[in-house]
């Protein structure tokens, strides 16, 4: 693996992500044109529809310019972190996003931690004990939880842990560190039911695949210590699929947060998006989607780069592609 081939691979991936983001932003922007009805009326929000206000909207959003010019203006503004204003409150979209992002990021990180901390060990145990009791239990649970929708699970959690047992708060984000954490536990558990199952499955499959390889048999035959066998052979070689799973989990969490925030009435990006969609507040919709999409692309990029660090073969293959 040469430095140049690695660099070329990284730049290639970055370029790909940038192109995707531009295509995607164009799609998001086009929604405005696709939306049924007159964009002017949509952008009016709850202002009265007088000829004056309508003209003002036209001028402010350059609606008389050709479509591509409008998009270009929006895109260059977006690159300067200016995503326009909410048509309902007049608040800057970027400041609205900043205000809400905290809860979503905290929820995402907590979910990710729970998922990885439980998913990888459970998957490994299931894989190493394939067909035994532990494996059957873990696999059945995974099958169950992978199919459970987070909002339905969330509601059941509220009923049990907030209602019947009264252990944890049911809704809202709370104030301050410890209180915030208490408020985020149930949402994070609801969100991680599906992702834990995902990580369990990826890890289990990877471990089974690796444990059956000749190099494991050969290493056992020449007396490699069991601990080395587990960490340097099985775990190390299972890492690529596990990284894939981690990437999938992160992007799933970013998107799944939308539904879970609605379930637990958390003031995050997701609930901002949902209310904006319900109220047809297009600048907010565009801004939030763009931010979440950019985050997802970034996660994918980091996943790809993580492969590089783990598997020396990927850099070579990737560069020669």
């Amino acid at each position: 693996m040469t430095l140049r081939s690695t660099l070329r691979y990284v730049l290639g991936r970055l370029g790909g992500a940038a192109i995707l983001l531009v295509v995607y932003s164009f799609g998001i922007y086009s929604l405005l044109a696709l939306a049924p009805g007159d964009p002017v009326r949509l952008l009016l929000g709850n202002l009265p529809a007088t000829p004056e206000t309508m003209d003002a909207i036209r001028v402010r959003y350059n609606l008389d310019d050709p479509f591509f010019v409008q998009y270009w203006n929006w895109l260059t503004d977006a690159l300067h972190l200016d995503l326009g204003q909410s048509v309902l409150t007049g608040q800057d979209v970027s400041s609205a996003i900043l205000e809400r992002a905290g809860v979503t990021v905290q929820l995402g990180l907590l979910t990710f931690l729970i998922t990885m901390a439980l998913g990888i060990p459970l998957g490994m145990v299931a894989g190493l004990r394939r067909g035994r009791f532990a494996d059957r239990v873990v696999s059945q649970l995974a099958m169950f939880s992978v199919s459970a929708p987070s909002f339905a699970v969330g509601i059941l959690l509220i009923i049990v842990f907030a209602g019947q047992l009264n252990w944890l708060p049911s809704i809202g984000a709370g104030e301050g560190g410890a209180d915030r954490l208490r408020h985020l536990i149930l949402p994070a558990v609801a969100l991680s039911t599906a992702t834990i199952a995902l990580v369990v499955r990826y890890t289990r499959t990877a471990v089974i695949e690796v444990a059956g390889q000749d190099y494991i048999i050969a290493a056992r035959a020449r007396g490699v210590k069991p601990s080395r066998l587990l960490f340097n052979y099985v775990l190390r070689n299972s890492l690529v699929p596990v990284i894939t799973a981690a990437g999938v989990v992160l992007s799933f969490v970013m998107v799944g947060a939308v539904v879970v925030e609605a379930t637990f009435a958390l003031p995050g990006l997701g609930s901002l998006l949902v209310s904006a969609v319900q109220q047809k507040d297009l600048p907010i919709v565009q801004g939030v989607t763009l931010v979440i999409a950019a985050a997802v692309f970034l996660i994918n990029l980091v996943t790809d780069l993580a492969y590089l660090a783990v598997d020396p073969r990927i850099a070579v293959d990737g560069a020669s592609r």
């Binding site: 995707l20 995607y24 929604l31 696709l34 998107v255 939308v258 539904v259 998006l273 989607t289 999409a293």
Partner: peptide, 20 residues
């Protein structure tokens, strides 16, 4: 590839929200 890179549920929410 394009569809894969997209956060699917998000697109659905936005598209449905806008399309009505």
């Amino acid at each position: 590839d394009l569809m894969y890179a997209l956060p699917g549920v998000l697109v659905a929410i936005v598209a449905i929200g806008v399309l009505g």
